[in-house]
Amino acid sequence: MSEERRERRSYLIGTLLSILLTAIAFATIPLDLPRGGTMLLIGISAVLQVIVQLRFFLHIDLSRQKREDLQLILFSLLLLGIMAGGTIWILTNLSQRMM
């Protein structure tokens, strides 16, 4: 299989997986599951779809040449988690105490 076909197939796989994961996420709404389960499903499929797109569209993988980019992304996610998670923690705590 030529390099080009292999790469095209990778894009197509990425798209198909994304469609699948999006469909699962959207299907939770009409299915009317319990709220906790819905949130969990939406959350998991979002995370999976991010990974799929990073892998198949942005070509980030565990190989050595990509290590620098991967480290950058993981470090950014750490800081994003600290900032966004911290904000939500602080502000919900505050609003609970102001009830």
């Binding site: 900032m83 966004a84 998670g85 904000t87 939500i88 502000l91 919900t92 609003s95």
Partner: peptide
């Protein structure tokens, strides 16, 4: 930051 603001 905007996501966190929205969530809060």
């Amino acid at each position: 930051v905007l996501f966190a603001t929205y969530a809060a």
